[in-house]
Every structure is written in C-alpha cells, then in structure tokens.
Design a protein around this nucleic acid. Sequence first.
DNA 1: GTCTATACTCTGATAGAC
DNA 2: GTCTATCAGAGTATAGAC
Lengths: 186, 186
Amino acid sequence: MPYPAKLSPTAILEEARRQLEDGGAEALTMRTLAEALQVRPSSLYRHYPDRAALLAALEDHAVSALHTALVQASSDQSGRAALEAAAHAYLEYARVHPHLYGLLLAPKPPYVAGPGPGKDLWNFVLERVEAITGQRDDTAAAVAVWAFLHGFAVLERSGQFGASGPRGGFERGLSALIDGLSARRG
Amino acid sequence: MPYPAKLSPTAILEEARRQLEDGGAEALTMRTLAEALQVRPSSLYRHYPDRAALLAALEDHAVSALHTALVQASSDQSGRAALEAAAHAYLEYARVHPHLYGLLLAPKPPYVAGPGPGKDLWNFVLERVEAITGQRDDTAAAVAVWAFLHGFAVLERSGQFGASGPRGGFERGLSALIDGLSARRG
DNA sequence: GTCTATACTCTGATAGAC
DNA sequence: GTCTATCAGAGTATAGAC
C-alpha cells in the first residue's frame, strides 16, 4: 500500500447518510457521493457492490439508531409509561430523520422475523406491549401498536398536519389503543 | 382531423395503470408506455406534461376507487359495523392494488384538507368515525383510525406477515381502537 | 394539432490499465 | 484501490413532417 486508502466503507456511509438526510433518497447518487469524497464514481463499487447495498447499510444504521432511541427514552420507566415514552421517541425519530426513517419500511423483505438488527427493534416493541396486555408473545397487539405508530409517522410526513388540530390524534389514538388492548385482560 | 388520434389521455392512463399494477412505479417508464401504445415516447408529452403528472393522475384514480370501495362496503350498515366494514374494505384495496395504493401517501402535499377527490375520502372516514365517538369534527379520532389502517397496510405490504399469526393484529387493533375511542364519550 | 426524429443530460454499472 | 473510458437506459426538450 503505497498510500493510505482514500475511501473506507464507513467514510462512504457517513457521507451517504449526510446526503440522504439533506435531500432524500433521490439526492443520493453515486456521482454526487463520489464528488463529495473526491473520488471517481467507479471507485465506490470496490466498497459497496451497488447503490442498493449502500441503501441497505443506511437502513441498518437507521434501525439501530431508532432502537437505541427507544431504549433510552423508556429505560427508566415501566408499564404504560414506558410504552408511551417509547411511542413518543418513535415519532420523534421519524420527525427528526424523515428520510432515514423512510428507508425502514420500504416495500422489501422484513425486518420483523428477519435476521439482523431489526429483530432487536421488534423484540423491544413486543416486550413493551406485552407489559401492557399481560400476554406473552402477544404478536397481534404489538403489530397493532406498530401499525399505528408507523401510520401516524407517515401521515405526518406526507404534509397535512399543519398548525391545526390533528396532531392531537397521536395522543388520542395511542391512549385509545392502549386502553383497548389492556382492557382485554379482564 | 384527417385521422383519429392514436392517443388520448384516458387511453394513456389505462395503459399506465396496467404497467403500474404489474410492475410497480419503477416499471412505468415513458418508453415502455410509448412502446405499448405503439407511439414514440415524446408523443406522450402532448397529453401529459411530464411523468409526474401521469403519476398524479393515477393517484387521483386510486383515491376515487378507494373511496368508492369504502362507500360500497359500508353503505348498508351503520355505527360500529359500518366503520369495521369500511376498514376491511380499506385493507382489501391495499392488498389487491398494492402499487396503486402505494401512490396514495407518498411524501407529497395532502390530500387531507387538499382540494380534489381526496377530500371526499377524508370526509367519509371522518363521518364513519364520528358515528363511533359521538363528537362532531372529531379530527383527532379520524386521524388515529386512518393512521392505524395505513400503517397496517404498509406493514403487510412490506412482507413480514406470513401465514403465521400477525394478521390477527388487524382485528385486535381495530377493536381496541374503536373501544378506546368510543369509551371516551362517558 | 398530432406525432416523429433526434439529441441532450443524468443515472447506475462494468472492463481493464496502473 | 483507484483510475479512465464507456455503456445502456432513464426523463425530457425541440424542430419539423404531415
């Protein structure tokens, strides 16, 4: 090695994340990426086989970051308070990193039940929900909560909720969902 | 007019819908579209200013179709039964027309509160939800229900729910949500 | 007015020299 | 590991035939 490598997978990933967060997935092209790294586009292919692999790596990063955020937000709480704290942290992550979050549930394989970091995230949600419903392996309830969280995040991202009321829909829906799910253990 | 026009906006739209439903948004290119219509790509631009306009037209179609499906599914019912029937029809539409449905909530302007056919759809959901909660203009509750429906549709589309359990999450979540929302009028 | 022909720019990706 | 050179395919714009 006559000279240190200009590129490394992590350096590429960092710049890619920057461009994605700035301008969305469309703004992340191999050419702009190479230019920012002062390298020719084809050089990137020595570190990532194609653009899809780069996006997949970014998705893994997002899953881990989201998981960490949820754990931190709810670590010092339990029961309903823990689930609510995690839910707010979930929405907050989707707000702060909309394009990164947008990678998460693209029409692709899983992540629920898939190997990799997504499993931790799923298990975390499952545990928090189980604490509410009192049932073990309560997949149905966890799916319901996740669906609500994701749906609200997408609705919000797609523009409508202005300064007006609908934002209250999150608290309202979350409460209703938790009430309805936990009431079942009667 | 010496000869009948080979193209018309509706003919283009029909073929575009076909290609979209077959292979998703990526498969719908101006070139393949022109080929199927036996025309040069640039001819399409006499009828639609650009590809985005075509997708917007397809989205309008999807909104109308979804609205119609919801109305038909719940027309002969009322109260909770009507909402549940509409919810199932919503999910069914997303299953049968995944790519068309995928156009609906792309990160774009509205459709809630926006002019055009989307408003009818929103108002319909709002009415059905109000019948449950007993409050007028209960935007928060309607947003909560819509978020759940959309979130579940996306989760399902992204692959995980195999033959196993999670499908029960829809009934479970819908019941819990309705219970929690209607209990509020105590 | 409708469509054809052509070309421009941008994308992701590959082959082979060094 | 990075380069040069090059490719095929995308969307799009314009000039002109009929």
